[in-house]
Amino acid sequence: MNSPLMVEATDLGAADLATLLNRLLDNIGSVVLGKPEVIKLAVVALLAEGHVLVEDVPGMGKTLLARAIAASIDCSFRRLQFTPDLLPSDILGSSVYNAGTGDFIFKPGPIFANVILADEVNRTTPRTQSALLEAMSDGQVSVEGNTHILERPFLVIATQNPYEFEGTYVLPESQLDRFMIRLRMGYPLRSEERRVLSTHRSGEPVETLRPVVTGEEIRQLQRAVRKVRVDDAITEYLLDIVHATRDGDELNVGVSTRGALTLYRAAQGLALVSGRDYIVPDDIKTLAVPVLSHRVVGKSFLQAGEFGAAEAIIRDIVDRLRVPS
């Protein structure tokens, strides 16, 4: 429809939500050019309280995306470059002896920020990876017996280069599950690339970004996501997809219940981002591949490594199933 219909029952008015979201999307889009779908998915993860794993070769704008999101929200941003020698305490923080008081005080690590870019997450050891991932899924950090709650909103954008093997520690499937959405940046169109070149003439444009949304507003949006209406037929459709991944024989491990729940939540997020307070089948269909393909395991090791294969299988399933109407 011409006029987006918005939620009434939130703290913000419907129109406020719409303008807020448009502002956020436009702001990010003004820097990250030609990638409206990717931006949308990242914002979905933000609103649905999930995290994003971006896979692509370096230089595709992964970092830019994370920085643009962080800069658009009035909140803190940290970038973590993962290296083989990175230790968990380098991320989480550690207790430091305070000579003055004679006791240990906790010095929070870089994870205590609202938006975190975890660059090349597969370069570090599994131990460090799991420290990050646990913090992501729990929303809190436990160091030496003390629990520290992470501030909301909390969004981790992790990147990895799938075309590199030497000295990498590939995230196992169980860990991949912590990411709500896995996406690729992909090469931009020629025209977009030209624009990128021209906008960079006078320096990094992301530096000039101004925050357009506050952290509090993001939290309100997150609450609104949970109120997005889901029709029974859509739930059935979602379950159809999930079950198809379990029944099929290309996949050894189908989508877990958590995976189903995540898809549900992500679809709610996408609905809100699209200016609706109800899910439509398209939301599920659009999100099935980015949300599910890293949660399944192919039948044979010959396929296991190929994310492309998993994506193809999920896409195949989605293209086969009957859409409710």
Binding site: R229, D231, D277, S325
Partner: peptide, 21 residues
């Protein structure tokens, strides 16, 4: 697209269309 959007509103959004729409 116009019709399908309206259909979505009714079918999945449980709304009613305004007369003029």
């Amino acid at each position: 697209p116009l019709v399908v959007d309206a259909f979505y509103q009714i079918r999945f959004g449980e709304r009613t269309l305004r007369e003029d729409d």
